[in-house]
């Protein structure tokens, strides 16, 4: 475990906590894409299949349980909580996210490390996570005023995989083992998808104005 990896996991944890905080305390999911939350729940469900078979460390298992639990509870809140679901903007959150799942599954069936169920599911989760933010970014472009918590959530979510890239570079130079190239590519694509958001987020922070993405 290196500092980049720990920073990445803590940033990811912070993003989840910010979103849970927003939804649980102010009972609102305005500006939050349910589609992205559903995609992330699927990402964790398909990536952490080994949670019962391969024990790596207490930290690893605890973090997996947190990410699984939080992503599914956020989906539940937005779908079923009697107050929260009223603030869900389903007319704006219209990205057809199954059009993301199908290509990712097809790609995982053709491009993977080993053709086993677990390995294909794991590869699918990497490809899916790379594009999972798209419904949320589309929704932000339609949502005129993005509230701070939602902006912080997306920023932290994008930053975590960026920190993982530094972790992969560090491990490449310091460890005999290596991270599979599929992980590298999916992680870089994922981080690049946030590039324009990061730009506008930084601009709004620098000029101390409300975050707005161009339509």
């Amino acid at each position: 475990m290196n500092i980049f990896r720990l920073a990445g996991d803590m940033t990811h944890l912070a993003s989840v906590l910010v979103l849970l905080l927003k939804i649980h305390t102010i009972k609102s999911c305005a500006g939050v894409s349910l589609k992205t939350q559903e995609l992330y729940a699927l990402v964790f469900a398909t990536r952490y299949l080994d949670i019962v078979t391969d024990f790596i460390s207490v930290y690893n298992t605890v973090m997996k349980l947190i990410f699984l639990g939080s992503s599914f509870s956020i989906v539940w809140y937005i779908r079923h909580h009697r107050v929260v679901r009223r603030s869900y903007d389903k007319d704006q959150d219209t990205f057809r996210h199954y059009l993301l799942m199908i290509p990712c599954m097809l790609l995982a069936l053709f491009v993977h490390e080993k053709f086993t169920f677990k390995e294909v599911m794991w590869t699918f989760s990497l490809y899916l996570e790379a594009v999972a933010i798209l419904p949320q970014l589309v929704l932000l472009q339609r949502t005129r005023n993005i509230d701070n918590l939602t902006g912080q959530y997306v920023f932290l979510l994008g930053a975590y995989r960026g920190l993982y890239i530094f972790n992969w570079i560090y491990r490449y130079f310091t460890e005999p083992h290596f991270v599979h190239w599929i992980t590298w590519i999916a992680g870089v694509v994922q981080t690049l998808l946030y590039a324009d958001f990061f730009y506008y987020y930084f601009e709004s922070w620098k000029n101390n104005v409300r975050l707005q993405l161009p339509a």
Binding site: H12, D50, R171, E175, H177, F178, V179
Partner: peptide, 10 residues
């Protein structure tokens, strides 16, 4: 083996 791909990340 040397070329062992790690799967210890989240």
């Amino acid at each position: 083996d040397e070329h062992h791909v790690v799967k210890d990340e989240l």
